[in-house]
Write a protein that binds this DNA or RNA. Structure first.
Length: 853
RNA sequence: GGGGAAUUAGCUCAGUUGGCUAGAGCGCACGAUUCACAUUCGUGAGGCCACAGGUUCGAGCCCUGUAUUCCCCACCA
């Protein structure tokens, strides 16, 4: 088939992908050592962003490379119901259509969101296909699939039985806009400027007052104590006495608690147990009352009539005004402190008392830490292991309840007559159940999404049920974003060790964030979001894939580099044209066999491709994607296209050329799967219809003659010098190259003329003249007139100065006794050789200049 | 308050255990070109590797400090 002049990716990509999928190449082969990766499931209802493109691409490179190496590869795709994320989107639609979550039952909402997600799921999957992701679609797992829910319930039951799950009234992080609670790590803390108000509470049992400092005066309506440090001399006498709370006039006690920082504010703290986690703990230690004064809408409740129903901020103003009026305010100061926000809508997180399900993570974390300290998991970059150990070492209980209908219902029921009597039961589709004559009402909350995705590796591989894919657990590589270290990676490790006794993956690789071209974080509000699909349609999938990994190192947030994507596109076109040209030269249908190198260039290209393959292997084993891609790029562009193909124009070896092209396509395939497969298919060299590039084998070491390869390197150096020197000469004349007895030149006359455009003749002489090619170390001259040589004198002098400088440096090094004694022998020898060569070079240059003078 | 990362060419970034002339892509300059590719070819310019000390025969890399930037964590009322 005749190929067009330019590669047009969009024309080929969809058919190539369909072909792969139909061929079954994405499914584990069942042959070879298992190699597995699970996909961090993208949101089922969302679009892929540029970060996904990076993430998926890195995994796909590994999958394709390992598959070609003969491994039994499982790259298992997933789709995430993304409980809260999806719910936010859906609830916005509800509001837009004038309804609200309160108009429907949980079942109704669940099925509505199900349909909503189901209608959009295909988009995400199409985008993964557009990126060429070679995952095993037959094994796709949705986080709401039955097997996921079953496992989640089993795990929950097991944790419950082990006493690691408890339900209790605790302070939770509550978003009053979304009306759900969050885990601690989901809260986004930001430093904000605020005021620290000093409020005087009159003493009841003694004369005087006690002044407390607070950033939240409105919560004083719910104060149930004042706390001071037990060692604080200022307040020692007051501990145990009572004060009167301004505005509400309730009486509260002064307690002593270690938590109080004597040096902060006045050293006295108001205690509002229902709306501050620390105060809650103080309250527990001192058996204080708890008064809820803020409801789930963020409005004041259980407060004097004047404050009822106000928002927190309104109440704050009013309380301050009221205190001012009653002269209980003792001034204020500006302060900057950290305030929790909803990561989705920015609403200030309200700490509220709620009955929720919590997981005691400490015992799980301890076991996980043991595994991590044994280095059971390799981390890239390695310092991340310390970060995760540090996090696990101070882990707190995990609130897994979410007050949203979209998610896996928590399988628990409460005795209608006894709020303390909870039982585990999976009949979550029934509002009430009867157990031994007692009626139980179901829990309406759902699990935090991360509770289910935290079990991903053993769920998708069916490890607990010893399913067909269980040979893939533990998985080989978990490649994900650095921001998920706590949220996902740590939980997968804890839950996996808890349920299976094993680590979930052998290696973790963290990629960094993709920022915009000016290294600014991408965000919808800034309008600087780069859509990967637009890149695919503009430059092609391969171009995006090559561009996005270029110059990227693990865990480093880096700018998106459009230039690198363009370079990727150009590379694909280069490869395309290499193939067009090679096909033309070859003519018929070659049999691609082991390479049988004949010419110097043949031996040399075998060596270059051997070396490239070995380097790519090492680099990918160490997850140095960018370097591996670079190695491949230069092997093909520089060695194959610029040298070997140019040589082929003069002396062609059809079998060799076929092997070179074949090998190039293989080496490039993990990085640029579409263009390589397109070429492979259109060449049709491999008769077997099932023989696709994706399923073919990775190149192996081939034999060549080292001496011949090195001879070609020398020849190459001569060409380079000739080009360089003639480029420096004035004008654009053609020159004759003169040489004395030199077989390398004699045998490759034609090649020399072809490769050095400015040389149109090569002549054997007995006596050289003109300008000597001094650095080649051969007896070679450019036959130029004395006049031209004279004009060139300045260049020669400059070069001579450079060489002298280099000689001086080498001599100084070799005169240093410590260097001779301590540096490795081969380096010293190298320096000596180098010095000798430079001296010879200098001599030749001097000789040239002598003639001119 | 604690921790981490970064600082290398005009831009975006590589640089594995220290090894001698620090690389890539894009951009720039000069030149080439009917005959695979202008998404091309050839050649080149451009770097006190943030700064100051130290260790070493030798430092972009290791150590100490400084500056700047970014990120994460934190129950700072």
């Amino acid at each position: 088939m005749k190929l067009a002049k330019q590669y047009t990716p969009n024309e080929f990509e969809p058919t190539i992908y369909a072909m792969w999928e139909q061929s079954g190449a994405f499914q584990p082969s069942g042959k070879g050592d298992p190699y597995s990766m699970v996909m961090p499931p993208p949101n089922a209802n969302g679009n892929l962003h540029i970060g996904h493109a990076l993430d998926m691409n890195l995994k796909d490179i590994l999958a394709r490379w390992r598959r070609m190496q003969g491994r039994d590869v499982a790259f298992i795709p997933g789709a995430d119901h993304a409980g809260f994320e999806t719910w936010v989107v859906y609830e916005r639609r509800l509001h837009e259509s004038g309804s609200s979550r309160f108009d429907f039952t949980r079942e109704q909402l669940y099925s509505q969101v199900w349909d909503f997600v189901d209608a959009r799921r295909g988009d995400m999957e199409l985008q993964l296909r557009a990126l060429g992701i070679s995952c095993s679609w037959d094994d796709l797992v949705f986080t709401l699939d039955e097997k996921v829910i079953d496992t989640v319930y089993d795990t929950f039951k097991s944790l419950w039985d082990d006493g690691l799950v408890y339900r209790g009234e605790r302070i939770v992080n509550y978003c009053t806009t979304h009306q759900t609670s969050f885990a601690d790590i989901e809260v986004e803390h930001k430093n904000e400027k605020s005021k620290l108000w000093n409020i005087a509470y009159p003493l009841l049992d003694k004369r005087g007052e006690i002044v407390v400092a607070t950033t939240r005066p409105e919560t004083m309506l719910g104060d149930t104590a004042i706390a001071v440090h037990p060692d604080d001399e200022r307040y020692k006498d007051l501990v145990g006495t009572r004060v009167q709370l301004p505005i509400t006039n309730r009486e509260i006690e002064i307690v002593a608690d270690e938590h109080v920082d004597m040096s902060f504010g006045t050293g006295a703290v108001k205690v509002t147990p229902a709306h501050d986690p620390n105060d809650f703990e103080i309250a527990q230690r001192h058996q204080l009352n708890v008064i809820n004064i803020i409801d789930e809408q963020g409005k004041m409740t259980n407060v004097p009539a004047a404050f009822m129903g106000l928002t927190v901020l309104e109440a704050r103003k009013k309380v301050v005004a009221s205190l001012q009026a009653s002269e209980d305010l003792r001034g204020s100061e500006d302060i900057e402190h950290s305030v929790g926000h909803c990561y989705k809508c920015g609403t200030i997180i309200e700490p509220l008392m709620k009955d929720q399900w919590f997981l005691k993570l400490e015992p799980l974390a301890k076991e996980a830490i043991v595994k991590l300290k044994e280095h059971a998991i390799d981390f890239y970059p390695s310092q991340k292991v310390n970060e995760i150990i540090a996090y696990l070492g101070q882990i707190r209980d995990w609130n897994i309840s979410r007050q949203i209908p979209w998610g896996i219902p928590i399988p628990a029921f409460v005795n209608v007559d006894d709020p303390k009597d909870w039982i585990f039961d999976t009949r979550v589709d029934q509002e009430t159940i009867d157990v031994d004559g007692t009626t139980y009402k179901r829990e309406e909350d759902t699990f935090d999404t991360w509770f289910s995705s935290g079990q991903w590796p053993y769920v998708v591989t069916d490890y607990l049920s010893k399913g067909e894919l269980s040979r893939f657990f533990p998985t080989d590589v978990m490649e994900t974003g650095g921001d998920l270290l706590r949220q996902w990676v740590s939980r997968m490790i804890m839950l996996s060790v808890y349920r299976t006794g094993e680590i979930p993956f052998k290696t973790v690789y963290f990629h960094g964030m993709v920022n915009d071209e000016h290294n600014q974080k991408m965000s919808k509000s800034k309008g600087n979001v780069i859509n990967p699909m637009e890149m695919v349609s503009e430059f092609g999938s391969d171009a995006l894939r090559m561009g996005i990994i270029s110059g990227r190192s693990p865990s480093q947030n880096q700018a998106f580099n459009r230039g690198a994507v363009i370079a990727g596109r150009n590379f694909c076109n280069k490869l395309w044209n290499v193939s067009r040209f090679a096909e033309d030269l070859i003519g018929g249908q070659p049999e691609v066999t082991k390479p049988m190198p004949k010419s110097l260039a043949d031996h040399w290209i075998v060596r270059q491709l051997n070396e490239a393959r070995a380097a790519i292997d090492t680099q990918l084993e160490q997850f140095r994607f960018s370097e591996a891609s670079d190695t491949m790029y230069h092997a093909i562009w520089d060695d194959v296209a610029d040298w070997y193909l140019e040589v082929s124009k003069v002396e062609k070896n059809t079998e060799m050329l076929a092997w070179v092209l074949d090998t190039s396509l293989k080496l490039a395939h993990p990085f640029a799967p579409f263009v390589t497969e397109t070429i492979w298919q259109s060449l049709g060299w491999h008769d077997d219809a099932t023989d696709n590039l994706i399923s073919t084998t990775w190149p192996v070491d081939e034999t060549y003659d080292e001496i011949a390869a090195t001879e070609f390197s020398r020849f190459k150096n001569l060409v380079t010098e000739a080009r360089f020197v003639t480029a420096e000469l004035p004008g654009n004349d053609k020159y004759t190259l003169l040489y004395m007895d030199d077989a390398l030149i004699e045998d490759n006359e034609g090649l020399l003329r072809h490769l050095v455009r400015s040389v149109d003749a090569v002549k054997h002489v007995d006596q050289g003249k003109g300008l000597r090619l001094a650095s080649s170390g051969r007896d070679v001259w450019l036959d130029i007139s004395e006049e031209t040589l004279y004009e060139h004198q300045a260049n020669l002098e400059r070069r001579l100065a450079e060489v002298h400088k280099s000689i001086k440096a080498l001599e100084a090094r070799l005169e240093n006794k410590s260097y001779i004694d301590k540096a490795p022998e081969h380096l010293v020898a190298e320096s000596r050789d180098k010095l000798a060569a430079e001296k010879e070079h200098a001599e030749r240059l001097e000789h040239e200049l002598e003639v001119l003078r």
